[in-house]
C-alpha cells in the first residue's frame, strides 16, 4: 500500500542565507544591505542566465524587507516586459527616486541593462543603481547547494547521490533541486532511505525535471 504524504514540510523558503554565493558574494552582501535599508543606494539590478538564482534572490530580498517592515519593490524578468509594463516600471522608478521613503527597487533580467532592447529611458535607469551579473556556480558549489537544500528539508543525502546527480543530470540548479525534492518525497512515501539505486529508478520515471 502506498503511503500518502501529508505536505507538512514544504520546500524551505528562499532566503539570502540559503543561497550558495560562490562568486556572487559581493552581490549578496549588497543585496542584504540594500534590502535591509542599510545602504544609501536603493536600486539594484541583477542579471544572468536562466537558473542562476535571480528569482530566488528577488524573493529573499522581498521577505527580508517585509520582516523589517521596509518598503521594497521587485521586478523580475524585465526582458519580458511589454511596452506598457516598461513605462509602468519607469514610473515606479521615478516615483521611488523622488521619494526615498517609498523604499528600494530590486530588479532582474537575462542580460546587462542596455542589452535587452528595453526602452532607453528605462534601461539607463536600471544601469543607474548597482548592477551585478550573477555568475553560475561551479560543480563543487552546486554540490554544496544540494547538501544545504537537503539539510533544510531534513533529508539525509549521501555523497554518492550528490556525485551521481552532478554526473548524470543536467547541472542547472532548478533541475538539481527539483530532482532532490522528488527524491525526498519518494523516500518519504516509500519509507526507504535515499540511495543511488532509488535515484536511478526515479530518473526512469517520466518526470518533469
Amino acid at each position: 500500500m502506498k503511503q500518502l504524504l501529508l505536505d507538512i514540510q514544504p520546500a524551505p523558503p528562499p532566503s539570502l542565507e540559503n543561497f550558495v554565493g560562490g562568486r556572487n558574494a559581493e552581490a549578496l552582501d549588497s543585496l542584504r544591505r540594500v534590502a535591509s535599508g542599510q545602504s544609501e543606494l536603493r536600486f539594484v539590478y541583477l542579471w544572468g542566465a536562466e537558473g542562476c538564482g535571480k528569482t530566488h534572490l528577488l524573493k529573499s530580498c522581498a521577505m527580508l524587507a517585509a520582516r523589517l517592515d521596509l518598503p521594497l519593490t521587485t521586478a523580475d524578468d524585465v526582458h519580458l516586459l511589454s511596452e506598457e509594463a516598461q513605462i509602468q516600471l519607469f514610473n515606479t522608478f521615478n516615483h521611488l527616486r523622488e521619494n526615498p521613503a517609498a523604499g528600494v527597487l530590486v530588479s532582474a533580467g537575462l542580460a546587462a541593462p542596455m542589452q535587452m532592447g528595453l526602452r532607453d529611458d528605462l534601461a539607463t535607469r536600471l544601469a543607474w543603481g548597482l548592477v551585478y551579473q550573477l555568475h553560475p556556480l561551479t560543480d563543487e558549489e552546486k554540490a554544496c547547494a544540494l547538501r544545504n537544500h537537503a539539510s533544510e528539508r531534513g533529508m539525509k543525502l549521501p555523497d554518492e547521490v550528490v556525485d551521481y546527480c552532478l554526473r548524470y543530470l543536467r547541472r542547472d540548479l532548478p533541475t538539481l533541486m527539483a530532482t532532490l525534492d522528488a527524491l525526498d518525497e519518494w523516500s518519504l512515501t516509500s519509507k526507504k532511505p535515499v540511495t543511488v539505486p532509488m535515484l536511478r529508478k526515479l530518473l526512469q520515471l517520466p518526470l518533469n525535471i
Binding site: L41, P113, A127, W128, L130
Partner: peptide
Amino acid sequence: RSSVRELEGALNRIVAMAKFT
C-alpha cells in the same frame, strides 16, 4: 560613453566593490 546614468552606475559599483573587498 552613452549616458550619465550609466557613468554613475559604474561609479556605484566600483565603490561597492572597494568597500566589499
